[in-house]
């Protein structure tokens, strides 16, 4: 008599199992390959190289700055989308999520056109304040913010929609105006959603490549973030590329682990 376990196993159709296994192998093998090729013995020394540390430091600083900017502007945008009652809200939501599907290089070109020295905002900034944005660390942060803020907005808007607005009514009956109700009741209640959005946003900013290299260039110490360094190293120093890739992989895994519950649980 077959046990429950074997009966259950027998139910998986081969037509599903085979592509699933192949697909899993496709997803997992490259990562395994990265680990297999890693120069483990020289790893500490290579990680301590100044160029490596520069790229790492720049990546962490700019991704964090981009996340801060995204929080500052993204949370209010999410609130407008979730709670606002104005015409064209769905259009606005569509526009906000465009960077999610836009090829990052296109985003970089668009940023260059606006903030470049001949762009609408760029020429004004240059004439008025003698400020040049493209190919600076600021450009890195802007490029990252452009591609990663939608992740935060989508996450926070979802959290806001899920939040029970009656708590805000309860706060109002206790003397809280709309702003106080937002800061003292709504925001703490959606904090997990904001945190998840911020982590996603940060991870996306950390991995940003296309918009950065288009809008900010590839200057070591100034605009060369880790993904850019990986790309450059590929052509000269394969081992450095692998070490940098390992670093990024480690960061991704840590992010995934910290988000485990929200990321893997069905929404």
């Amino acid at each position: 008599m077959p046990t429950a376990r074997t009966r259950r196993r027998r139910r998986i159709p081969a037509a599903l199992l085979a592509p699933a296994v192949l697909g899993l192998a496709f997803l997992i093998l490259p990562l395994a390959g990265l680990l297999a090729r890693a120069p483990w013995s020289e790893l500490p020394a290579r990680l301590a190289e100044p160029a490596m540390l520069d790229a790492l430091r720049l990546s962490l600083v700019t991704a964090t700055a981009a996340t801060a900017l995204s929080l500052l502007f993204g949370v209010p945008i999410a609130w407008l989308l979730a709670r606002g009652d104005f015409p064209g809200r769905s259009l606005l939501r569509a526009l906000v999520t465009v960077p999610l599907v836009l090829p990052p290089v296109v985003g970089g070109v668009a940023l260059l056109l606006v903030f470049g020295r001949n762009g609408i905002v760029g020429s004004w900034l240059h004439d008025r304040f003698d400020l040049t944005i493209p190919f600076t660390t600021t450009a890195v942060v802007l490029a990252m913010t452009f591609v990663s803020m939608p992740f935060l907005i989508v996450s926070v808007e979802g959290a806001l929609r899920g939040a029970d607005t009656r708590f805000e009514e309860a706060a109002a009956t206790l003397g809280a105006g709309r702003w106080t109700a937002f800061t003292h009741v709504t925001l703490p209640m959606i904090a997990p959603g904001v945190l998840a959005g911020a982590v996603l946003c940060w991870a996306r900013a950390l991995g940003e490549f296309g918009a950065t290299i288009t809008f900010a260039g590839n200057f070591p110490g100034r605009t060369q973030t880790m993904p850019l360094a990986v790309y450059l190293a590929l052509q000269t120093d394969m081992e450095a590329a692998i070490v940098l890739s390992l670093l990024l992989l480690a960061v991704s895994v840590i992010v995934l682990a910290s988000l485990r519950d929200r990321w893997t649980a069905t929404p």
Binding site: T173, M189, A191
Partner: peptide, 20 residues
């Protein structure tokens, strides 16, 4: 507006703030 009325409300499911 409600925040300026001298009222107190006990809601049906209380609506105690879960984070406090």
């Amino acid at each position: 507006p409600p925040e300026h009325r001298r009222i107190g409300v006990v809601f049906q499911d209380y609506l105690l703030f879960p984070h406090l």
